[in-house]
């Protein structure tokens, strides 16, 4: 298996995209997950539904809306233009925005589940010890929800690496900017360069399997630790 320079550029770009998206999603997703885990509001169901939408929406729908919304006549495009940032399609940051939507449920849901599993008791105990809400969040909730954060990071990262449809629709296939591994593979296959396609596809298969294997091992270890 050998990679061309273009392949390596695509691999590096994909890793950069997935890392950026995962970090941003942990920042954005944590408060959303916390709110979803605690709230009794009537808005809980609609917000949870919006977060979960990418699980069932075809990437073509998301890609189509994003292309229009982020374009020069779309509301998001006019917003970014008014900030002097130009429009986002065909740029790395356009892919970041798209991927944040696309990978959101993979990050929010594990964190939310972990936070719900904590229950009221530890928080009440902390409150009787005069811990304020922020203190409770940082010294009780975050450590107890750690397994959820690890699962969320792994899934968010892996899901962004595997993204294809949206990127094809808003990326414009620019080397080093928007041509990620999945698009590079697609190009190889379409151009009938099956050897190069095999190398990259094999690497992706190996990566995805290892990620899931690591995840399940981790979850098993946690269960055993809990039982003991």
């Amino acid at each position: 298996m050998s990679f061309s320079e273009a392949d390596l550029t695509a691999i590096w770009l994909t890793l950069r995209l997935a890392t950026t998206v995962t970090l941003l999603l942990l920042l954005i997703g944590t408060p959303i997950a916390w709110w979803l885990a605690r709230t009794q509001s009537v808005w809980k169901a609609p917000v949870a539904a919006i977060v979960a939408l990418p699980l069932i929406l075809p990437p073509t729908v998301l890609g189509f809306y994003l292309l229009i919304a982020m374009g020069p006549h779309g509301f998001f495009g006019q917003f970014t233009q008014s900030l002097g940032l130009g429009t986002l399609p065909f740029t790395f940051w356009g892919l970041v925005v798209a991927s944040i939507f696309y990978s959101m449920p993979f990050v929010v849901q594990p964190i939310q589940n972990a936070m719900e599993a904590i229950g009221e008791r530890p928080l009440e105990v902390a409150a009787t010890l005069r811990a304020g809400p922020l203190d409770r969040f940082f010294s009780v909730v975050l450590p107890l929800a750690k397994p959820g954060f690890i699962t969320a990071s792994i899934l968010g990262f892996a899901h962004t690496v595997g993204e294809f449809g949206i990127i094809l629709m808003i990326g414009g296939n620019i080397p080093g900017e928007t041509r990620v591994i999945s698009v590079q593979i697609y190009d190889h296959v379409e151009a009938l360069e099956f050897m190069q396609a095999h190398a990259l596809s094999g690497a992706m298969l190996l990566f995805s399997f290892s990620v899931l294997l690591a995840l399940y091992w981790l979850q098993r270890k946690q269960k055993i630790a809990l039982l003991n």
Binding site: L67, H73, L168, G172, N173
Partner: peptide, 17 residues
């Protein structure tokens, strides 16, 4: 910017992107 085919290329222009 590259369209995957001529239809997507048209789409990039028609949406103003």
């Amino acid at each position: 910017v590259h369209g995957e085919n001529i239809a997507q290329t048209y789409q990039f222009v028609s949406t103003g992107n």
